[in-house]
Amino acid sequence: MTSSPALVVDGIHASYGPLQVLFDSSLRVERGEMVALLGPNGVGKSTLLKVIGGLLTPDAGTVSILGQDLTSAPTRKRVEAGLCQVVGQSSFPSMSVVENLLMHGYTNSDRKWTKEATEAALAVFPRLNARRNQAASTLSGGERQMLALAKTIVGDPKLLVVDEFSLGLAPVVVGGLMDLVRRLNERGASILLVEQSVNVALSLVHRAYVMEKGTMIAEEDAAVLAADPERVAALMLGGHAEAHA
């Protein structure tokens, strides 16, 4: 029997009060797949992530994670189902690196496993390991992003959603983070990457969606799209009709 996709977002309409932001938005991530959601600021990407994470209830449509319809479920249920979201460089600033990682294993009742996973995560990031007892607030931007991704190793997600992980970071740091995302994928995590840097995203994922004004205007094979920079430019500038001409 074929396993269900890691994520299915189907026909989502969502609003903030009277302002509708998402219009019939749909995407899917198959198990073991890496998918990018592309588009400039203000088109609804972050709103869609709130719907996926349970922070915003849609007006219509459904969200299924690993075969479970979780459209109306609280965020806790989605985490229990295997969802992990990395948004920016989020951490507990007054807590140490180790404490941040241990906190991220709270959903697992096996404390021994959580400690072992914490050490495994630190082994992936020697720079973090060297700062293991420092407060997160003292880390550089790149180190805080490493910490955000390291927490996913402790969480051992089945579905990982990463939002703008390259924002404001040096290319050499971004390259290292891309390697980690690939390794997480190889470990079994299905990944949805929301990213403004088209080059970063297309070099990493298998497929890509492009969003404009709250709806999907294209779904493409990443390699095919990367080989057609004129089409990429047209899509990112909202010129999808011309891109098909």
Results as ranks from 00 to 15, higher is better:
R127T: 12
I65M: 03
T47M: 09
Q134A: 15
S96D: 13
F125T: 11
V98I: 15
E119K: 12
A130C: 07
F92D: 10
E143A: 07
T118C: 15
L122C: 05
R132K: 15
S109W: 05
G88Q: 15
L101H: 03
S72G: 09
P126V: 11
L66N: 12
L48E: 04
V86K: 05
A117F: 03
V51W: 01
P126Y: 13
T47E: 09
R131D: 03
R76I: 00
L56C: 08
L66S: 06
S72K: 08
G142H: 13
T47R: 08
R111M: 00
L101M: 03
V51H: 01
H104G: 13
A117V: 04
G54L: 01
G44F: 08
A148P: 11
I65W: 00
Q68N: 15
L55M: 10
T71C: 05
S137N: 14
L70E: 09
L147C: 01
T114I: 12
P93C: 04
S91F: 10
A123W: 05
Y106T: 11
A36L: 04
L38K: 02
T47H: 07
L37E: 03
E143Q: 12
G142Q: 07
S94P: 07
K115N: 14
R131T: 08
T71R: 00
K112D: 15
A150N: 04
A123F: 06
R76M: 02
P74M: 06
E116W: 06
T47G: 07
A150E: 08
L55H: 12
K151F: 09
V79Q: 01
I65E: 02
W113P: 01
G67Q: 03
R111E: 02
E99P: 10
E99K: 15
F92H: 08
L56Q: 08
T138W: 06
T138H: 11
P74L: 08
C84F: 02
A121V: 00
G141P: 02
G39Q: 10
S109P: 00
